[in-house]
Amino acid sequence: MGMRSALLFVIALLFAAPAMAADLTVTIRSTSGQSVRDAVVTLQPTAAQAPAPIRFSWPYKVTQQNLQFDPFVLIVPQGSEVSFPNKDGVRHHVYSFSSAKPFELKLYGKDESRSVKFDKTGIVALGCNIHDGMVGFVIVVDTPYAMKSDASGSVTLRGAPAGPATLRIWHPYMKAGNNQIERRIVVPAGGMTEAVVVQLRPAPDHSRSY
């Protein structure tokens, strides 16, 4: 690289990079005014992205503990290997019939683990064939701008590129087609805050078993 092109590159970095990376904060409330946790917010910039490996800061792991999947919702990049350790004193039988990844991990016990590679994007609903009350979701994405809402119903996607993009908000119990709403937005260079109100239906009651 010559001196001139190096200088140009630095200038480009100075002007372009900071100006084009924005923080997008989304807060999600239900129609009854409550903060909605475990809503998955993804941003898909319209402009083509340089392909780069996507990596999230949280572990790609769904633990079975106290007859529940923990976390209830896990976001992973496409192609990830997710482990399913069992921390319960009883055995579990994890499965999904979702088209994004139908699989079955037959019975395994305490302190054992199995893993599954999620090679297609989409929503993968998890169940345990022994314990009908166990419900969980793996959300497989191909964008680095994805996160689930915390207890305050809030998500901040950092470093999103300014410009037009599609914002999607998904929640397992959202009253909407595919449990998802979609908005076309233009992310301003200075970042933005978006408030979203969603309608939720009550979580299904699988507590009884005969």
């Binding site: 039988h93 499965y95 019939f97 139908p102 079955e104 169940g127 064939n129 005969y210």
Partner: peptide, 20 residues
């Protein structure tokens, strides 16, 4: 109780039992 292959689930019980 076979593992569900779709959203349709099947279960059978046979023996001395309390109906639901």
């Amino acid at each position: 109780k076979p593992t569900p292959k779709s959203a349709t689930r099947f279960q059978a019980r046979m023996g001395l039992l309390y109906p639901e």
